[in-house]
Design a protein around this nucleic acid. Sequence first.
DNA 1: ATTATTGCAAACGCTTTGCACTCCC
DNA 2: GGGAGTGCAAAGCGTTTGCAATAAT
Lengths: 151, 151
Amino acid sequence: MTKEAAHKEFTSFLKKGDNRITPERFEVLDHAMDYKGHFGADELYIKMRTSNSDISRATVYNTVELLAQCGLVVKRNFGENKTRYESIVNKKLHDHLICTNCGTIKEFSEPKIQKIVKELSVAIGFEPDSYSLNIYGKCTNPNCGQIKNAK
Amino acid sequence: MTKEAAHKEFTSFLKKGDNRITPERFEVLDHAMDYKGHFGADELYIKMRTSNSDISRATVYNTVELLAQCGLVVKRNFGENKTRYESIVNKKLHDHLICTNCGTIKEFSEPKIQKIVKELSVAIGFEPDSYSLNIYGKCTNPNCGQIKNAK
DNA sequence: ATTATTGCAAACGCTTTGCACTCCC
DNA sequence: GGGAGTGCAAAGCGTTTGCAATAAT
């Protein structure tokens, strides 16, 4: 998805919800799309402040939440007691393998799981919007174990 | 599982890891087992303080973590930026449906998912210890929507 | 006796809040 | 012009930390 397309989508989302079109919101969208990998709201705020922007922390927090509602970004949580986000642009749905030794996060995609999640939810009488699957364990990185283990 | 069995298991876990056997640790274990449903470390601390104990916050946090390592308790995270725990005693492995409207958390168990998670991980080259699957969406509770919606 | 564990209070990191100012509609 | 959105700083919440006192080994 191009930035223009994302802007368009965000614009119509904002209008639909009677939210205003402000330059700050698109500034946040742009930086979120530029971010490689997962980011916390505060990291994004810091990144923006150090690059050129004079946006406020509150605005970044608010806007990132709007982006998640809009679907341009997904919310993640890896058990660190902080919310992470990830731009969905140019990415397909995926899940995460988290190494409990070195903290490495590996992504994978498996349509089978998506299918089962959907079927199950409906069977139970639940209208699923999204899901999050994290698998915790040990990765096969040869350097793993020497890294964070020494805490 | 009886409390005695849990005590026994925790005892052998502690010995194996060269941790000491202290009354505080078993006090935490007992209260965790009594807790119906999920609890945060702080909630458990508050509950213990209000019931009779004069345990410290630090000890509860530390011990609950030991219980999780031991496996008598599982760590959960429902995207609230806080760690939740759940006594595994008398419960089988299960996943969660979380209603984004009213906040209700419903449990379900599906061996098919456990099987797929295992297979997938191994195929990717990952040694899985545990996993967490949360499905977010709308529940079918007739009162849902009138409850937390009015935020 | 040695050293892990405890209790306490202060600090921490991420997030939310209150309020005055701004600027989109 | 009215009210949503912004910026700022302070407060909030769950959690972690440092250190002296305590108790398990």
